[in-house]
Write a protein that binds this DNA or RNA. Structure first.
Lengths: 188, 188
DNA sequence: CATAGAGTTCATTTTTTCTTGAACTTTAGG
DNA sequence: CCTAAAGTTCAAGAAAAAATGAACTCTATG
């Protein structure tokens, strides 16, 4: 099982078969490899990231934080997931932008400590706000421009095309009206 | 002309040049190039396709059909959009699978004639059914497996991790329960 | 202020995804 | 049955997206 998960998550990386949830490191490195619980949670978020059109690394980072009992530092995230500094930095930035991750300050430590937003409602809100709303708003703007173009088209077509456009307008408006409602519904 | 189309579809920020709606072809080809109305509608659907993680060609095909007053044949789609046979075939297949496009039969013509589903409600339904539901169902299954893994973990952690998993379960269930509602809401 | 630690940036490389088109299957009509 | 038109398939090439890591900025402290 663990091997299977390992393979799915990190294709082609050397993986020491790890059967249990032990956190000891067998290769002498400071950071433990991922246990099967973590691998599975991470996998779920990686898949979700892909459905949403986000980079895998974003899913990995969020998944790791989601099942961590304490805040993790930049280095811990980077080393445990075996991803680069750049991916870690950009992934964390994205996650902070959509409020999926926040930082906590730990006394006497200069490093940032990252925590996942566990209330998925807030997570969804951030995603909808940062990604979906802009798209819908841009669409509305474009539709407005379109109406002008349409005024120059042959009258016999104009009526039908106007109708089609009005469907799009309606749909756009409804989709935007839907978002707050969706958020309320999944308010976990 | 072809270059212009390409540019406008790909990086369509400069949408102001609305020259004419004429359908005459200036390069001698059988199929007319796209007019500015079509270009703009197609652009909207291409963008949407990208948000949804679908190939550009799928957005192009749907956009073209969406603003066509008559059913179009395979060749018309291919030639007007200047995309390959393969892309056309696969794009149309995908669109038919999610019920975004259907074929009509025209007397005395062996070719398929394709029409866009104008009721965006049905379109959304197909997309949710074919793309989102499978993901949510897969997620639920994985979460079920996870519970077993969790039973082997240290008791002091188990409680907290179980709680986090239960958030995920709840979220998953709610998301699935939401879909029918969303569809009803956008029933245009 | 000089420095080292913490994180960011971004040109390059790597990986993934999309498109292409030649070869293939299927089917209507002769 | 054959043929040719209509569409499909899929290996290979092209394009797009993501990951990498060296060079960079910023800042808290000695």
């Amino acid at each position: 099982m663990a091997v299977d998960l390992q393979n799915r998550l990190e294709r082609g990386k050397s993986s020491t078969s790890r059967s249990s949830l032990a956190e000891a490191s067998s290769d002498g490195s400071t950071y433990s490899s991922l246990n099967s619980f973590e691998l599975e949670i991470i996998h779920i978020f990686v898949q979700t990231a892909q459905v949403l059109g986000l980079p895998k690394s974003v899913g990995e980072i969020f998944g790791l934080l989601y099942c961590s009992l304490e805040p993790l530092t930049f280095d811990e995230i980077m080393l445990r997931l075996k991803i680069s500094k750049g991916s870690t930095s950009q992934g964390l930035r994205f996650l902070r932008n959509i409020r999926a991750v926040k930082t906590t300050y730990m006394a006497g430590d200069r490093k940032d400590h990252f925590v996942a937003e566990l209330r998925l409602r807030n997570l969804s809100a951030g995603f909808l706000r940062e990604r979906i709303m802009p798209h819908l708003e841009n669409g509305e703007e474009r539709l407005n421009n379109l109406q002008q173009i349409l005024d120059h088209s042959p009258p016999e077509k104009r009526k039908i095309l106007k109708e089609r456009m009005s469907y799009l307008f309606t749909w756009n408006k409804k989709a935007r009206g839907l978002l707050p409602w969706v958020l309320k519904f999944i308010d976990t």
